[in-house]
Design a binder for these strands. Sequence first.
DNA 1: CGACAACTTGACGTTAGTCAACCACGGTGG
DNA 2: CCACCGTGGTTGACTAACGTCAAGTTGTCG
Lengths: 236, 236
Amino acid sequence: MTIAENNKEFLASEECALCPTREIALFANLKPEDLLQMHSPIQYKVLEKGETLYTHDEKADYIYTLHDGVLKLEQYLPSGEQRIVRLLRRGDLAGIEAVTAANYQHDAIALTKISVCKIPSNLVLDLSHKSPELHANLLNKWQLALTTSDTWLTKLSTGPSRYRVVRLLIWLSGNSPDEEFYMPGREDMGNILSLTTETVSRAIAGLRRDGVLELRGSNSAMADISNLKQIVKEPT
Amino acid sequence: MTIAENNKEFLASEECALCPTREIALFANLKPEDLLQMHSPIQYKVLEKGETLYTHDEKADYIYTLHDGVLKLEQYLPSGEQRIVRLLRRGDLAGIEAVTAANYQHDAIALTKISVCKIPSNLVLDLSHKSPELHANLLNKWQLALTTSDTWLTKLSTGPSRYRVVRLLIWLSGNSPDEEFYMPGREDMGNILSLTTETVSRAIAGLRRDGVLELRGSNSAMADISNLKQIVKEPT
DNA sequence: CGACAACTTGACGTTAGTCAACCACGGTGG
DNA sequence: CCACCGTGGTTGACTAACGTCAAGTTGTCG
């Protein structure tokens, strides 16, 4: 039985050494002896599409590493408007704020079926003092989140609708050309780009007409990435 | 002679203990013995309005704590568009990415006369291992930056122009009612809100007509904050 | 006092939002 | 198995908002 076969299972921390995602996630480069120091339970969880990982009013006691799938982080305004501030995928950290803040800052909702490791935040805090590697990893992850956030501001919230949609598609494709990639629903895309579903839909229709985008199954697409990049004048 | 009277001066690290900004900045809560460990030079600098603190292509060797004034962090797109991704003020950290990344992520330009402390990034990295307090401070600052970034996404890049301008004004006023506050030029405001200078200008004209905003000297204004908050339906 | 830059205002064009109808698909139940 | 319904997506006609271009106006600094 592999880890992924069982839905909700507790892991002894030692098994982290076997984790396939470890290399790209929080515990990369950790010395084996540091891994063994972790006696707190780390829980492996699978969430179905649409399920909620945590909400902003919740006490922030856990950090999650994302093994598979796509997770959205949403924020609400007092006026009721909502906005997706980030999308997370394999190797990303959800709820890092648990290390320093009392509550989460967002609602985290699965866009696809996802699998995560649920790590007690005080465990991370402890280890970050003892292990320079984890300390560095943590800072790196934090910086990555900030860079992503800045990029979203400049690339996804600026310019005409067509450009925004194209930039989002480039990001979603993960820069790998001629591969199918996950494409969120129109409403979610709108909440990322601050556009309406109709406008997003029209932009996508236009790209299909121009032959640079092809829809596959539901929430899946293929694109000619280098063409997309030319549209927004990015180096190919 | 106080620190601020001289334009560009090297400080022995011991003087950090006397720094008035220390409480709110990076070195808050540091033990005196930790402060004394710092033998690397910390440079105190004053920049005039319009001067550049660092640019994105520069090697990131220093972190800056902002003592006074307002600093903008700008990012450029390949297409040439530019966007202000954050404004920093008293107590904020500029160039934190120097701890983990090789280069800066933004151009940092003074919007007003500013004063900063220029701290070698490897000093911060070293100390963050030795001092749990600094370690915590660093994580806190990082989280603050991320929260700010998220807020800018949801509050300043969403909704009609009037709302965006109002939300920016609320932020600029620092929530202190009936006090004069710094207001950037229209073009900069536009680059924060992703609006044109004309649209910003019109929005401001409208607010003045409605009697909720009053211009003072150049780049300075006063507003009825609680009225502003009602406009965007925020709790007063 | 003059010159320049920043800001404002107006008229107009373009883009995205709105409202509404329609279509396509998947699941449910008869 | 197929009709039905619901959801998400698309399309069209119209409207409102913002951008653009251009001409003033104000303000500031030498």
